[in-house]
Simulated assay, not measured.
Amino acid sequence: METVNSSQAHVGFGGKIRTARLVGRRVRFLMDFEDESGPFTAHTNNTGTMLGLLRRGSEALLSVSDAPGRKYACTVEALRLRGCREDFWVGVNTSLPTRMLRAAWEAGLLPDCEGYTQFTAEPRFAGGRLDARLSGPGGELLVETKNVTLVEECVAQFPDAPTERGRKHLVELTRLRQAGTRAALFFAVQRPDGECFGPADVVDPEYGELLRQAVAAGVEVWPFVVDVAEDGYRLGRRLTLAL
């Protein structure tokens, strides 16, 4: 269940949480774990590389679903990473950014979204779907959301793997903005150690170039830290943009 209070946007896990130790990633959507009950497999919706996170023995948070017909009851929510000063959770659930965007909008914590009274998920565009449309007296605002798990030299970066889909979204947002529609990218940085945000040029240089072109065209970029804890996710501080 997603909850919002007046001072902070909070998104819960929606069910029970199970902790376990990472054994490894089996295939794209499956990861193996173990706990006191023995080995088991969980689903992950993160198709990126999760660069630097997949360390055998790392602690993990998994949400447990009782939905009938699911082959794997657990979904990977976060992995524990050892930092220079302390360990911290890194959220890897890629469904979180759009949910957090909506929770933050409902809580009135996004000044960029003032004047919009309606939130529509997954609006269509010519080549597929974006993540959100906000509308109201302020007009129309199209937003694509992305999950960020990579930090290098204190810079939170996206993507962690070459992303054709992400590049297509940048092209579409740029086209929309050039046609007069307000457009934005919401980057949910699900770890606390980034001091600013920029594109991962080493991973996908074309994405970096398209992001710079989008910003030059007027597409807005909103990078926010999302604090991950054992009771869910909370909107944290906004990061500066480093292009």
Rank of each mutant, 00 (worst) to 15 (best):
A216C: 08
V90T: 13
E140K: 04
R234N: 02
Y72H: 14
H169A: 10
L173A: 07
P111L: 12
V11A: 04
E59I: 07
N45I: 01
H43K: 06
V143D: 01
G15E: 03
V203L: 05
L176Q: 15
D193T: 15
F187G: 01
L130E: 02
V221T: 11
W105C: 10
R56K: 15
V27T: 11
G15A: 12
A184C: 09
H43N: 02
H10T: 03
E2R: 05
K71L: 15
V221C: 15
A161L: 14
G194K: 11
G91V: 14
V203Y: 03
L79A: 07
M1L: 06
T41K: 03
R70M: 14
T149E: 05
T3F: 07
D66S: 14
Q213C: 10
A229V: 04
Q157D: 00
A73H: 13
Y207F: 15
L185D: 00
T174W: 05
L134P: 01
I17D: 02
V203C: 11
E195L: 14
T49G: 00
E114L: 12
E2C: 02
S58G: 04
D87K: 08
F119T: 13
I17K: 01
A200D: 15
Q157R: 15
T145E: 03
P192A: 12
A20W: 02
A121M: 09
F33G: 01
A214Q: 04
L79N: 05
L110T: 10
D201Y: 13
L239A: 03
A188W: 09
M100P: 00
L130F: 14
V171L: 15
I17T: 03
D131F: 12
V202I: 10
E172F: 11
C74W: 14
M50S: 05
A9N: 04
A217K: 08
G38T: 07
S95K: 11
G48Y: 04
L134W: 02
A126Q: 10
P223N: 07
T120F: 08
A242T: 11
C196M: 12
A183I: 11
L170R: 08
F29D: 06
T44G: 02
G48L: 03
A188R: 07
F125T: 09
P159A: 12
L239S: 01
N5G: 02
G38A: 02
V215Y: 02
E77C: 07
A60V: 14
V4Y: 02
R18Y: 04
E106V: 12
G91E: 12
E172T: 14
L79C: 03
R25Q: 06
V148D: 03
A121W: 07
L210T: 08
L110A: 10
D35R: 01
E86R: 15
Y207E: 07
E195Y: 06
L141E: 05
H169W: 00
V143G: 00
T41L: 02
A20G: 01
R85W: 13
